[in-house]
């Protein structure tokens, strides 16, 4: 009977294959393809026939300036609100205008989030913000309508800052629509984007005087993570109602099949 020893031949074959592959890789200088990472694009709109590409940095600069003017300083979590509003606008425009460049005066944004940084972001994009007269030729519409249907008429930074004390994850809802066609899309941020009791901690750190140093540090980590998510995650990871593009069912079925096969084999043998 021939005994199947783990022999020299198999090892030699592996060695030859390895050195052959190494030689090919070395000579051709082949490089692994870069992993595709999410890239935060720019909000592209037309203002009186001129195409504008609005970057998040441009929006941030405007928002910082206006908040500083009104309050003297900027709340530490401001960036997170700008990023969230900016991402929501990008998604809303791509869903409503489906790749077409919208005209500024055709854009209407209704936000449920009574907060100044996100409001200024939307105002900058729609051209309705303070001191924008020289920055735009035409403007769209921006409103803040609370969850209970109340229209917030006073959109001053100070007033919105006061209102933002009691916001929750449910308030992160924005309706972006085309004034001319009436088509609209509601962008809703997933609740699990925010850690448990994030807004309770925010109220304590930003508005209260009782937060400990540890709580302050925890809040900084948390809002930074959320901000990173708004700037780096795929749409389906942060917004409700979007399907993950990859065909995951095949992977799940394969995974379950492998687990079952192992269990059955273990039980049989």
């Amino acid at each position: 009977m021939k005994v199947g020893k783990i022999g020299i031949k198999a090892l030699v074959l592996v060695l030859i294959m390895f050195y052959a592959l190494a030689a090919i890789a070395w000579v051709t200088g082949v490089e692994a393809p870069e992993e595709e990472e999410f890239e935060l694009g720019e909000v592209t709109i037309e203002d009186n026939g001129t195409e504008l590409a609005i970057s998040i940095d441009e929006v941030s600069e405007y928002v910082t300036e206006k908040i500083e003017d009104a309050m003297g300083s900027v709340p530490e979590d401001m960036e997170m609100f700008v990023s969230g509003a900016y991402r929501a606008t990008l998604l809303g425009i791509s869903e409503v205008w489906e790749g077409e460049v919208p005209s500024r005066d055709d854009i209407k944004i209704v936000s449920s989030l009574p907060e100044p940084a996100s409001a200024l972001c939307f105002q900058y994009i729609t051209g309705t913000g303070p001191s924008m007269e020289n920055l735009r030729a035409e403007n769209g519409v921006f409103e803040i309508v609370l969850q209970d249907g109340t229209l917030v008429e006073n959109t001053s930074v100070q007033h919105l800052y006061e209102l933002s004390k009691n916001i929750t994850a449910d308030d992160w809802k924005f309706e972006i629509s085309s004034i001319s066609t009436g088509e609209s899309f509601v962008v809703e941020v997933k609740g699990d984007v925010f850690p448990e009791d994030f807004f309770g901690l925010r109220e304590k750190v930003v508005f209260g005087q009782t937060a400990s140093e540890k709580e302050g540090q925890e809040f900084t980590w948390e809002w930074s993570d959320i901000n990173d998510g708004f700037q780096g995650f795929e749409d389906y990871e942060i917004f409700e109602g979007l399907e993950e593009p990859a065909p995951d069912s095949a992977t799940i079925v394969a995974l379950i099949a492998v687990i079952l096969a192992i269990v059955i084999l273990a039980l049989i043998i």
């Binding site: 190494a22 890789a25 393809p33």
Partner: peptide, 22 residues
């Protein structure tokens, strides 16, 4: 892995042991 990714894994740099083995 893709073909490029697969091949690239075998590319340089190599440890001394890999040079000395043959």
């Amino acid at each position: 892995n893709s073909l490029e990714g697969f091949l690239a894994t075998y590319g340089p740099p190599y440890s001394p042991a890999l040079f000395l083995l043959p």
